[in-house]
Amino acid sequence: MSIQARAGSMALMLLSLPLIPRPAQAVQVVPVPGQSRQWDVPPHVHFDELLHEVFWDITIIGVLMAMVAAYFLFAYRRRFPDEVGRLQKLSPQAALGWMIIPVALFMADDIYLFAKGWELHKQYREVPENAYEIRVTGAMWSWTYTYPNEVETYGELKVPAETPILLRMSSEDVVHSHFIQQYRVTEDLMPGRVTYMWFMPDKVGEYVVTCREYCGAGHSSMYGKVIVMAREEFDAWLESEAAAISASATVASAQQVVSPAADVSARDFGR
């Protein structure tokens, strides 16, 4: 018997050997193109639905277990000093049954939750084709948002409503994590890698953005906001910002190298 058990435990140990750290982080991360599947609701609404469902699930499991335990704790109090427990020994068949049936039940619940979670996971990770792309740079301890026309904002992410927003993110120094409270979405930023997240700003308003990966003394002051504007308002704002930049940059651009500047003489940018 003990030899079998020993062999069994050794086999288990051996089985665990090939499960070495899966260093899949080495795989370059790039956004997956949106697939044809259209979702009825934006991810953060979907998130709330799923969370609600999962809470029901775990509440039922937890309350059932607690009630059974509470009943046993109450019903089987010791009645006289020499009383002993009368739990029957299980026959081998019963023991097997008491393993297989609970495992099957847990497994069923796991698979159900996994399927539900996978659906939402795919929605979070599959970026719609028409997403508006904004670059996010994290640094200790502020956020920089760069729009496609090189307009930059600090700590304030202004986005048009009703448009999926794709954030392409990296960090200048340490690991940060970009969390938008309203849109229930978090993704880390780090040097040397590009990560992404997307969200669907469905209502005009201002929402909190915070850092969610510990990054030093300023971690808790690394917050900002998402400002969702009506499409026209946003376009007007972006244009005026761009105009302001180009006005101030005209002087500099004489020396600045702008590509493709086909006929700039070498000495113009020599140092």
Binding site: P43, H44, F47, L50, L51, V54, F55, D57, I58, I61, L113, F114, K116, G117, W118, E119, L120, H121, Q123, Y124, S177, F179, R184, V185, T186, E187, M197, R212, E213
Partner: peptide, 15 residues
């Protein structure tokens, strides 16, 4: 259990 789902984690990670 909710924390095990990557999808739920997008909303509650590091909270």
């Amino acid at each position: 259990i909710p924390n095990a789902l990557s999808a739920i984690d997008y909303g509650i990670s590091d909270s």
